[in-house]
Computed example of a mutant assay.
Amino acid sequence: MALEVVPAHDFDDVATMFAPRNPESSVCWCLSWRLSSTENRALTGTQRAEAMRELCARPLAPGVLAHLDGEVAGWAGIAPRAELHPFATSRKIPHIDDLPVWSLWCLRVRPGFRKRGITAALIGGAVDYARVSGAPAVESYPVDNAGQHVDLTMAFVGTRAMFERAGFTKAADTTSVSGGFPRILMRRMLDLSSPSEKSGA
């Protein structure tokens, strides 16, 4: 089993994760956390795909993609928090200091690839990408579900346990809720002087 995580510069691979059957449908394309509510409402249909295409073409990728045996298996949204309007301006998720942190806000695994180590690889690969891009720390905002089942529609935020396994620790409470569970702010500090760690399964 060959599992690798790479920066998401290939728009066609990103489309494998997000493109709707009807190109005119206004699906998320993982843009909702990048835009203000006004911008998000205004961007519809194929405009959303084109916005993601532009993000993929930038030097800084909009996230990372997992490939398993050459097939697109999963996605993680990772970017400087300052680029993510809802997080940058949130009153529910606090800024605990002035560090220019990156946020890991979305984890998605394609059906058929679940329970194969993809999520852990995505988190590791996203952290690695943030590190080599100069991030001093990565934050996540998962649910603190105490082992209870999280509905798949809200599972993209991740759980406390999966981020603890990846070396994150709780840094603050939030007043945000997802799927009926409280969300917490977790952080992993990055040693920019050390070689990038290899993301594993």
Rank of each mutant, 00 (worst) to 15 (best):
A2D: 14
E4L: 02
V6A: 07
P7I: 00
D10E: 15
D10Q: 08
D10H: 06
F11Y: 15
F11R: 12
D12Q: 14
D12L: 12
D13N: 11
V14T: 14
V14L: 15
V14H: 13
N22C: 03
N22M: 03
S25V: 00
C28M: 06
C30N: 05
L31P: 00
L31F: 01
W33T: 02
L35Q: 00
T38N: 13
E39Q: 14
N40C: 08
R41G: 07
L43Q: 01
G45M: 06
G45C: 07
A49N: 07
A49R: 11
M52K: 12
R53K: 15
R53Q: 13
E54Y: 04
E54K: 13
C56G: 06
R58A: 15
P59K: 05
P59E: 08
P62N: 13
G63V: 01
A66G: 12
A66L: 07
G74M: 04
G77D: 04
I78E: 05
P86D: 05
A88H: 10
I93T: 12
H95D: 09
H95W: 00
L99Q: 09
L99H: 06
P100K: 03
V101W: 01
W102D: 01
W102G: 00
W105I: 00
C106N: 03
C106G: 02
R108H: 11
P111Q: 11
P111N: 12
R114E: 15
K115L: 10
R116D: 03
I118C: 11
A120I: 06
L122S: 08
G124W: 12
G125M: 06
G125A: 10
D128P: 01
A130N: 09
R131Y: 08
R131N: 10
G134I: 06
P136W: 13
A137M: 01
Y141I: 03
Q148Y: 04
D151P: 10
T153W: 07
M154E: 15
A155F: 07
A155T: 05
V157E: 13
G158D: 07
F168E: 12
T169V: 13
V177E: 03
V177M: 05
F181T: 05
P182K: 08
P182I: 09
L185R: 10
L185T: 02
R187L: 12
R188N: 12
R188Y: 04
M189T: 12
S193H: 07
S196R: 15
S196N: 10
E197W: 02
